[in-house]
Nucleic acid binder design. Structure first.
Length: 528
RNA sequence: GCGGGCGUAGCUCAAUGGUAGAGCGUCAGCCUUCCAAGCUGAAUGUUGCCGGUUCGAGUCCGGUCGCCCGCUCCA
């Protein structure tokens, strides 16, 4: 098999176009920028909104476009919009306070960095003197290398039965000085374990004391879990159902990289879908397939999109028997030939609700009146349980980036040299209206048509008009901005009330009636 | 955070330690009846930022910020 185009696009060229055409700017650029933050310009802001709106429409307002769930019933999803700052106990319950503070160890010799809790140390049994050798947990090569170095140091052939093992984090400062790093030759090159807090910290209230510490949310998911009981109590939803929200999340990444792919401030689109434990595998399969299909339909239909099931050893311990976890991945120019994650679909069991129930003391169990054994009157007695959760969690900014990369289409045969092949549904500019020349009554007709299209389609994106310079230059500009259709008023329009429609992807034209333009565009935008 | 590379106009790039430039794009006017045509004109830079060496720094040195690559990280 051959991939004709996937790896050949230049990320530098795509970034240059994003800047040039107003899709993405570096945040605080006039002050020299700030690492890991990006702003969207006019076209980027609308593109991002269109993608978010498409998700909202297809998830919340018309779930899965009407496709029934595995139970044969309509899929039910309701939205919430929770705060970026929550009670800090939320993040203790979710495990983020612990998990986002992984101590790291650096090796001064090899410049490698390791998670401190992933390193083990070996010494000769019954001989605690001299050097200690560190190796990486669950890594046979690293273990063998350390054993070999220890054998050479002790001048005798040692096997795994001849050694004592302990965690690196259990070593004293004195012991660390005589410890040889996993990839090092000399002892004492490892630093003390240092904490890296990946959550942004802030203070609630003006006094800013340590008692007032709060965190910017590192994911939107927990805002859903903490509102589970509220939603069940105040709306008429019943399990199985989902709660969805979009919003910003913040992670103090060690190394922001690859344009907007790993940013410190980013936007997520998340669903937490609650179902009975027995139904979880079927719902997992359902969402996994639906989400893959959605990304394909939104414009990532090429061979740069793939679904990857996580291997068993990647799975969280609770994910094994409810389906599993899978990522929708896109082959970005900077990951090629590999892929980068767009969305994760994870089986989370009842882990999150259970954690919040334990930490908060709230009763989060759901009483399901459709289950349980039948009473004498034939009605089910009901069943009380913590619902299990399937979580499709997508990165909005990553989606935008994938769409930008996929749309970027070099074409030496056209004036612009490149055009942006956006799916009409997400294209930030929906249409453009041009008078062929800026005289002879054409501008007036164009202005009238433009005003009509703005009224009818302006809520979906920009409707452009432009009478300056040559028609070829205007088409070229629209190619780079990814406008799918250009309507041109020419001399014939004045005689027979027809206009030309130029198709961005083929650069070919057809004539349609002036009063049919609205219907034409509606059909092309999929809102006929 | 570590190592390497890079930083000049919106973009792509010039400029031996000696007056900061070009092409494209942008804007204005003229012209123009279908794909960046042509003509005329205009705007745009504390050379990322701060400091040092020098009579003189875009150029050399130090620091800092940012971007790219490799580590690390990616809950």
């Amino acid at each position: 098999m051959t991939d004709a185009t996937p790896n050949t696009k230049s990320m530098d060229d795509i970034m240059a176009l994003c800047k040039r055409r107003g899709f993405v700017y570096q945040a605080s650029e006039i002050y020299g920028g700030i690492n890991g933050f990006w702003d969207y310009g006019p076209l980027g802001a609308q593109l991002k909104k269109n993608l978010r709106d498409a998700w909202w429409q297809d998830i919340v307002m018309h779930p899965c476009r009407g496709k029934p769930g595995p139970d044969g019933k309509p899929v039910e999803i309701v939205p919430v919009d929770s705060c970026i700052i929550q009670n800090p106990k939320v993040w203790e319950a979710s495990g983020h306070v612990g998990g986002f503070n992984d101590p790291m160890v650096d090796c001064k010799e090899t410049k490698n960095r390791y998670r401190a809790d992933h390193l083990l140390c070996m010494g000769m049994k019954g001989d605690s003197t001299g050097q200690i050798y560190a190796y990486i947990e669950n890594n046979d090569d690293s273990f063998a290398a350390a054993l070999k170095k220890l054998s050479k140091y002790k001048k005798q052939e040692l096997t795994k039965d001849d050694i004592d093992i302990c965690a690196l984090t259990a070593l004293s400062t004195e012991e660390l000085v005589v410890t040889v790093g996993p990839d090092a030759k000399e002892a004492g090159t490892l630093t003390e374990p240092r904490a890296f807090n990946l959550m942004f910290k802030t203070y609630v209230g003006a006094t800013a004391s340590e008692d007032d510490v709060a965190y910017l949310r590192p994911e939107t998911a927990q805002g859903i879990f903490v509102n589970f009981k509220n939603v069940v109590d105040t709306t008429r939803v019943g399990v199985p159902f989902g709660i969805a929200q979009t919003g910003k999340a913040f992670r103090n990444e060690v190394t922001p990289r690859n344009f907007t792919f790993r940013s410190r401030e980013f936007e997520q689109m998340e669903i937490e879908f609650f179902c009975h434990k027995d139904d979880a595998p079927a719902w997992y399969q359902f969402w996994r397939d639906e989400r893959m299909k959605w990304w394909q339909e939104i414009g990532l239909g090429g061979n740069n999109l793939q679904m990857r099931e996580h291997d068993a050893d990647e799975l969280a311990h609770y994910a094994k028997d409810g389906g599993g976890a899978a990522d929708v991945e896109y082959r970005f120019p900077f990951t090629a030939p590999g892929f980068g994650e767009l969305e994760g679909i994870a089986y989370r069991s009842d882990y999150d609700l259970r954690q919040h129930a334990e930490h908060s003391g709230a009763k989060l169990e759901y009483f399901d009146t459709t289950r349980g054994e039948l009473a004498k009157n034939g009605q089910p007695k009901g069943e009380r349980y913590l619902p299990h959760v399937i979580e499709p969690s997508a990165g909005l900014d990553r989606g935008v980036l994938a769409i930008l990369c996929e749309a970027y289409t070099p074409d030496p045969d056209r004036a612009s040299g490149v055009f942006m092949k956006f799916h009409p549904r997400v294209a930030p500019i929906k249409a453009a209206v041009f008078p062929l020349v800026n005289k002879d009554g054409m501008p007036e007709v164009a202005a009238t048509l433009h005003a009509e299209l703005v009224r009818r389609f302006g809520h979906l994106g920009f409707i452009e008009t432009d009478a300056k310079q040559s028609i070829g230059k205007r088409y070229a500009r629209m190619d780079e901005a990814g406008c799918p259709y250009c309507f041109t008023i020419d001399g014939d329009t004045l005689n027979d009330n027809t206009v030309t429609v130029r198709d961005r992807d083929t650069a070919s034209q057809e004539r349609i009636a002036l009063d049919a333009v609205g219907a034409f565009l509606a059909e092309k935008l999929g809102i006929g």
